[in-house]
């Protein structure tokens, strides 16, 4: 395959009019990236030399860390949910299939911000209530005496113990898990059926075949969309500001009401998000190319 490339490139070069080669090349330059770069440089200049920008940046920048930690942890959990639910979506087990499909269809039908609020204020209290009930059950069952320490902890658990960052991560993970499940499902289904049959006919169990034969092949299909979803997560994590988590967006809101400097505030917030997402999509493109070049 690689030896056929030079001829293709030559053919396309010939199409460019010979009279104005420079003009043709100018057309293909990534001008948009240049504009982004210039805007970025002017903002760096503003932050380092204009006091109002400097103040905004110093107040908002710690939000980067919060946004990043929330996104990475929520995405990690979403990947685990995605793998388990994705396997459920292709399961021949009626219960597993329907549970998985229920989750995916319901969650994908709800706006992310509503999911985050719902998890934070409905599901988390329900889970805590369940834990209290479990704790009560353990404490009131004599033969479970050896578990009484745990039972007391569970029984005394209160909704206030779960801080807003934990709820935010739970909400994002719960919401994104449904999308990641579909990515895993599609990736696994893109592998020929014969691969699973060959693995099973060698005596491997379903999970052995998944782990050693199907998933290593599916990962090349799965990785690019997962990367894109992670970038989407960086952006959608701004929604957790409704839970008053001090992420980039929340600190922006606070800075604006503190200083009334709207332009400085939102220019800085936008700049910080863009630096993360643009770097992220560069990394995804690099990953994609790396996996394509290893094509067998």
């Amino acid at each position: 395959m690689p030896d056929s490339n030079p001829t293709i490139e030559k053919a396309s070069e010939r199409k460019i009019p010979g009279l104005f080669p420079t003009a043709a090349r100018l057309k293909t330059l990534p001008w948009w990236a240049l504009v982004v770069l210039l805007l970025g440089i002017s903002l760096v200049y503003a932050i380092t030399s204009i006091p109002s920008y400097q103040d905004a940046f110093e107040f908002i920048a710690p939000g980067l860390r919060v946004t990043f930690i929330a996104s990475v942890s929520a995405f990690g959990i979403a990947l685990v949910i995605g793998l388990v639910v994705g396997l459920g979506r292709i399961s021949s087990n009626v219960v597993a299939y329907n549970l998985a499909t229920f989750y995916v269809e319901v969650v994908r039908g709800i706006p992310m911000i509503v999911i985050i609020i719902y998890v934070a204020f409905v599901l988390v209290p329900i889970v805590v209530g369940g834990m209290n009930g479990l704790g009560h059950l353990i404490l009131s069952t004599p033969w479970l005496a050896f578990l009484h320490g745990m039972g007391e902890n569970l029984y005394s658990m209160s909704v206030q113990d779960i801080d807003s960052m934990a709820r935010a991560i739970a909400g994002l993970a719960f919401g994104f898990g449904a999308y990641e499940a579909e990515v895993f499902r599609a990736g696994i289904q893109s592998i020929e059926k014969g691969q699973m049959e060959a693995a099973r006919s060698l005596g491997m169990s379903y999970f052995q075949a998944m782990r050693h034969v199907i998933l290593p092949q599916a990962i090349r299909v799965i990785l690019p969309p997962l990367g894109n979803d992670f970038i989407a997560m960086l952006k959608d994590s701004s929604l957790i500001s409704v839970l008053a988590v001090r992420d980039l967006t929340q600190l922006g809101k606070l800075n604006r009401s503190r200083t009334f400097r709207t332009f400085e505030t939102w220019n800085t917030v936008t700049y910080l998000y863009l630096s993360m997402t643009l770097l992220g999509s560069m990394a995804v493109k690099w990953l994609e190319r790396k996996f394509k070049s290893g094509d067998r």
Partner: peptide, 14 residues
């Protein structure tokens, strides 16, 4: 299946 080997039309190598 560990005791029964199978060879497929389309090989199905990994």
């Amino acid at each position: 299946r560990a005791e029964v080997g199978m060879v497929f039309q389309l090989f199905n190598l990994f």
